[in-house]
Design a protein around this nucleic acid. Structure first.
Length: 453
DNA sequence: TTTTGAGTTGTTCGA
DNA sequence: GTCGAACAACTCAAA
């Protein structure tokens, strides 16, 4: 009997427990529901999703059914149209997804259809790594140790005798969104695997040395593939395990995967931490808001702060839907510590534009910067955008790539146009704040917020 | 139970 | 130019 595979963040065929479960019952009807509630504000983000859907559709010979609407109504309607008695999904763990899935399951139950969840987007299901007293870990390092010891299941492979069935109409894909400006790189399961193989051969061993350099191509660039489930971390861990045991780049890479799992775990235990402070240690912190600040936030978003490294990052985000991780930290620190803006404002902007934007990783990363998250940065740790730029983009290549107004400045001079007579000749904006002064202000505010605690 | 050591990612200042 | 200390206090994990 036909069953429905309701896809969300699992746009692949290989190593897919929910697809296996569906295929065990007979032909599979793959469905993606465009949920208006999740339509991000940014173009790149929506285009990347649409491209991923197109890739899945192509890989399954046009089997994918796409519909728009309230998932409860759409999934129920599709199940009825296809005469399916079961709907298979991969477990989801964000607060909205959990509510949504409960609601959809109830709606289906009313129709006599069962919804079955198999597998998760993680190597280890959120909520399963616990300390000896049965509580979740609050600190990364012990979590990562226990997570590593827990181990991941081996990859599953592609189901045998898989038959796709498209017996209902699809809205089809939005060609306007799929086509223009593929700035986000190759898309789909095959591309993800290709990228991973290339990184295994070429980048993994140097990952510990090169991953912090935004001017180089030292990261895996797998985040967006992981975001859409075009590849599963099980595969990455299985392939990297032997080399990770020996340390070096492979081990650091596995640690980065552990961060992804850790933040998903934290969000599972504390769904309120998606948009609210995980810790109340700086509750009462004085943040700025209103007209004057809005203008500066707009400058931050547009990449017109006058700080080359910050502006390069923000323009890379708008231009490609991606920003190097180290630059995410510095741009985030700038919004929170230099502009004194509440972290969710920045987290929202990132999620709207990042093609790899993941609620748990993004928002807990922001909380780390803001000092409200797990393993929060000490309050006195304020990134200096110029120092960071000169350290991690020593030749200024990254800045010149994204800030054409600074293209005429050689080497690391691009990081400090104010020190060069011709620095502003091409119309680069002057600095919107005095970093030293704002740093002191941020420390002052922190002390106020924590005084007497 | 108590104690102890440790905690992703930094910057500045003064010797 | 280099280097170490200071920048706080707190929570968590584990012995």
């Amino acid at each position: 009997m036909t069953s429905v595979l309701w896809l969300r963040r699992d746009l692949r065929v290989d190593d897919h427990p929910a697809l296996r479960a569906a295929a065990d019952e007979g032909p599979v009807l793959p469905l993606f529901v465009r949920d208006p509630r999740l339509a991000g504000a940014g173009d790149a983000r929506r285009r990347r999703l649409e491209a991923s859907l197109a890739a899945f559709d192509a890989a399954t010979d046009g089997a994918l059914v796409v519909r728009t609407g309230d998932p409860a109504e759409v999934v129920a309607a599709i199940a009825a149209e296809a005469g399916a008695r079961s709907v298979h999904v991969t477990g989801e763990f964000t607060p909205y997804a959990r509510r949504r899935d409960r609601r959809v399951a109830e709606r289906l139950r009313d129709d006599g259809v069962t919804m079955a969840a198999s597998g998760t987007p993680y190597a280890v299901r959120p909520g399963t790594v616990l300390n000896r007293s049965g509580s979740p870990y609050q600190v990364f390092t012990p979590f990562a140790r226990a997570w590593r010891d827990h181990g991941a299941e081996p990859p599953l492979g592609t189901p045998r005798g898989l038959r796709w069935r498209r017996t209902v109409d699809s809205e089809g894909l939005d060609a306007d969104l799929v086509e223009p400006g593929r700035s986000f790189g190759p898309v789909g399961e095959e591309a993800a695997l290709e990228r991973w193989r290339a990184f295994l051969a070429d980048g993994l061993d140097e990952y510990d040395e090169l991953r912090d350099r935004p001017d180089l191509d030292g990261t895996s660039r797998l985040s967006v593939h992981l975001k859409h489930g075009e590849i599963h971390p099980r595969t990455l861990l299985a392939d990297a395990a032997t080399r990770a045991a020996a340390g070096g780049g492979a081990r650091i890479f596995v640690t980065e995967l552990a961060w992804r799992e850790f933040y998903a775990d934290v969000l599972w235990h504390r769904p309120d931490s998606a948009w609210g402070d995980l810790r109340d240690g700086v509750a009462g912190m004085r943040y700025d808001e209103g007209a004057g600040v809005d203008e500066m936030v707009d400058a931050w978003k547009a990449g017109h702060t006058g700080f080359p490294y910050v502006d390069a990052g923000m323009r890379q985000l708008l231009g490609t839907g991606w920003m190097h991780n180290r630059v995410r930290m510095v741009t985030a620190s700038f919004l929170v510590k230099d502009l004194h803006v509440w972290w969710p404002v920045g987290a929202r902007h990132f999620l709207d534009h990042l093609v790899d934007g993941d609620l748990a990783s993004n928002n807990h990363g922001w909380q780390w910067v803001a000092g409200t998250g797990t393993d929060a940065a000490p309050y006195f740790r304020v990134f200096n955008p110029v120092t960071q730029g000169k350290k991690l983009d020593p030749d200024g290549d990254y800045v010149r790539r994204w800030v054409p107004e600074l293209a005429h400045l050689p080497g690391s001079a691009a990081h400090e146009p104010w020190r060069h007579p011709e620095g502003y000749d091409a119309g680069y904006p002057v600095r919107i704040v005095d970093h030293d002064a704002e740093r002191k202000d941020a420390l002052q505010r922190y002390q106020e917020a924590t005084a007497g605690r």
